[in-house]
């Protein structure tokens, strides 16, 4: 049978673009950084207490950029508060929950920071637990918001929140290690964060990388053996048009090279740790690109 050729059709724009990819990356790095911040005050690992505030401030700073991106990405920026109005709020819409999380997460971190500065262990722990739940939920939401669309074949996977949270964890640590390295230049010798501790964090990042590769492998099999839409997403989007952010940026630069560095005999070397951190932080952005923009690509031709 001869196949047909499509000779005319309407042209459609992809509805979400670069600002959303950056937003997903920022929220993830913020959540990952805050998890490290909580090690000392929430989980009681004392050697992490000195970096709690730096990690929290980094998490807050990254999250402060988010509203700028999200509000100006709206067609009607002045209507952003509709998301919180009782008569407008829609409980079945993931974005309705997301808007509450994005608002409450930075506030909870700020309260946590106040108690950390005051040295109030009990309240720092209590508010820290709340902030961790909100941090994870905020980033869980970024996975869910596109996952719950059965027509978006690449995004419609229950692995989405896990992929996002794992990416958050490793990019947050990567970003934080770079910030701590810069911060050390401005601190006296006794206040500097030790390289032993930073090397330990890099090893946590390595475990996260291994888990991320495992999740990507599951997702790879799902799309390779998937239905027509999933396979098209695999063959045409991920392996072809978005091969740079998917294969090179995320897998090679963001995961494989850092993994090799962090399991090698020189894994405690400063340069190696910093290089791996930068590559992971940058590489995770590749996942945000193919997830958001690649997930929408095929359908623009329908």
């Amino acid at each position: 049978m001869d196949e047909s050729v499509i000779i005319s059709n309407a042209f459609h724009h992809a509805p979400w673009g670069t600002p959303i990819t950056i937003y997903f990356w920022l929220v993830g790095a913020s959540a990952g950084s805050f998890v490290i911040s909580s090690f000392g005050w929430v989980f009681g690992i004392k050697r992490y207490k000195p970096l709690a505030l730096t990690a929290s401030f980094m998490a807050i700073f990254l999250l402060m950029i988010v509203p700028v991106l999200l509000i100006w990405d709206l067609g009607q920026p002045w209507r952003f508060f509709y998301l919180m109005l009782p008569g407008y709020w829609h409980s079945t819409a993931p974005m309705s929950w997301g808007s509450i999380l994005i608002l409450s997460y930075p506030v909870s971190m700020m309260v946590y920071c106040v108690f950390v500065i005051k040295g109030n262990v009990t309240w720092a722990r209590a508010t820290g637990i709340l902030a961790i739940v909100l941090a994870l939920s905020t980033h869980w939401y970024t996975g869910v918001v596109m996952e719950l669309n059965p027509g978006r074949y690449i995004n419609h996977t229950a692995l989405a929140p896990l992929l996002f949270l794992t990416g958050a964890f490793i990019s947050g640590i990567g970003g934080l290690l770079l910030v701590l390295w810069i911060q050390n230049f401005f601190l006296s010798a006794e206040k500097r964060i030790s390289w032993t501790l930073m090397s330990e964090m890099a090893q946590y990042m390595m475990y996260g990388i291994v888990f991320d590769i495992f999740l990507l492998w599951l997702e790879f099999m799902q799309t390779l053996y998937g239905n027509d839409g999933e396979y098209m997403g695999h063959a045409e989007v991920l392996m072809n048009l978005f091969s740079f952010p998917y294969i090179w940026l995320e897998m090679v630069i963001g995961l494989l090279i850092p993994l090799l560095l962090l399991v090698s005999p020189i894994k405690h070397n400063k340069v190696v740790i910093l290089a791996a951190s930068a590559m992971v932080a940058f590489g995770v952005y590749g996942m945000r690109i193919w997830w958001v923009m690649g997930g929408q690509f095929i359908q623009t031709f329908y």
């Binding site: 309407a10 979400w16 709206l74 067609g75 209507r79 918001v145 596109m146 669309n149 027509g151």
Partner: peptide
């Protein structure tokens, strides 16, 4: 009058039937 232009509905629509 209620639409904020977030385009979530366009992402959700499997039929490309919505536009900004």
């Amino acid at each position: 009058n209620r639409c904020i232009g977030c385009r979530t509905c366009i992402v959700a629509c499997p039929y490309n039937a919505r536009h900004l």
